[in-house]
Simulated assay, not measured.
Amino acid sequence: MPSVDLNADLGEGFGIWELGDDDAMLEIVTSANIACGFHAGDPVRLATTCRSAAATGVRIGAQVGYHDLSGFGRRYIDVDPEELTADVIYQIGALQALAQAAGSAVGYIKPHGALYNTIVKNRDQARAVAAAVHTVDPGMPVLGLSGSVFFEEARRLGMRTVAEAFADRAYRPDGQLVSRREKGAVLLDPNQIAERVATMVTSGRVTAADGSTIEVEVESVCVHGDSPGAVEIATAVRKRLLADGIELAAFI
């Protein structure tokens, strides 16, 4: 039976501000990309999210990003590579401690937002992030976009890469994501999204924003926890994949 991982970005509230329904999402997904305090999340919330993930048997990943709370990590920062490496190490270490206290562990790393998109092409920052993960744990898998220079740098260090596809984001013809500043970048219809994901998983293809068909490598599917209707979208995706005989299982 074919299998695929279903992941979501969680722990992204801050202080009195709630963002998404983490508890509901943890009943649906197989992996949780938990914020590390730089783009979102506060210590108490992250500790609680780690405990909830451990209780539901969901794998924990550290979602590392730029130091940009006010911009939710969605703004590019021209940070020095050495500083970026230190920032990523710091974030991984923080979430590792919280996950361990919850009786679990950080099993993989996923960059967030602008950092995720930047290291598709920016080799200096890609190398800095890969070096940070390798320094902490050379055996730690990294989740990202297939064909990115980040994957090239990670593989150069002998690290495992896991190709991710996005359920609720539009693709450009070159395989990158349409900017959130553009109309139609975020998809909202649960049934259409579920159909799209099923096609991606079974055929390795997706329709880009211009109507062209592009190839996409899928080992894990992301549903953004902060998207409108995220729980409904994740539920529809899960039901459709299971109905098509596809097992949902974490990649670690």
Rank of each mutant, 00 (worst) to 15 (best):
M1A: 14
P2V: 11
V4T: 12
V4S: 04
D9K: 10
G11V: 08
I16E: 10
I16W: 06
L19D: 02
D21P: 04
D23R: 15
L26P: 03
I28Q: 02
T30H: 05
T30I: 08
C36R: 04
G37T: 04
F38W: 11
A40W: 08
D42R: 01
D42F: 06
P43G: 03
R45H: 09
L46D: 00
T49L: 00
C50P: 11
C50F: 10
R51A: 15
S52M: 14
T56N: 15
V58N: 05
I60S: 07
G61W: 03
V64H: 01
Y66A: 05
Y66Q: 06
H67A: 15
D68E: 05
S70E: 14
G73P: 07
R75H: 15
D78N: 14
E82P: 01
E83C: 08
E83V: 15
L84D: 00
A86N: 09
A99P: 05
A101V: 01
A101C: 06
A101E: 14
A102I: 12
G103D: 12
S104V: 08
S104T: 12
G107Q: 14
K110M: 03
K110C: 02
A114F: 01
L115F: 02
Y116C: 03
N117A: 05
V120K: 01
R123D: 00
Q125V: 08
Q125W: 12
A126T: 02
A128V: 01
T135H: 13
D137I: 06
P138S: 12
P138K: 10
M140F: 10
V142E: 06
L143R: 00
L145N: 08
G147H: 00
V149Y: 02
F151M: 07
E153K: 06
A154L: 05
A154V: 03
R155W: 01
L157V: 04
R160D: 09
A163P: 06
E164C: 03
Y171R: 05
Y171P: 07
G175Q: 00
L177Q: 06
E182R: 14
E182L: 14
K183D: 11
K183G: 02
A185H: 01
V186G: 03
Q192E: 15
Q192M: 12
A194I: 08
E195G: 14
R196D: 00
T199V: 12
M200H: 09
A209Q: 10
A209S: 13
A209R: 13
G211D: 03
C222S: 04
V223Q: 02
H224Q: 09
P228K: 02
G229Y: 07
I233F: 05
A236T: 03
V237M: 07
R238W: 04
L241G: 08
L242S: 09
D244S: 15
G245M: 10
I246T: 07
A249R: 15
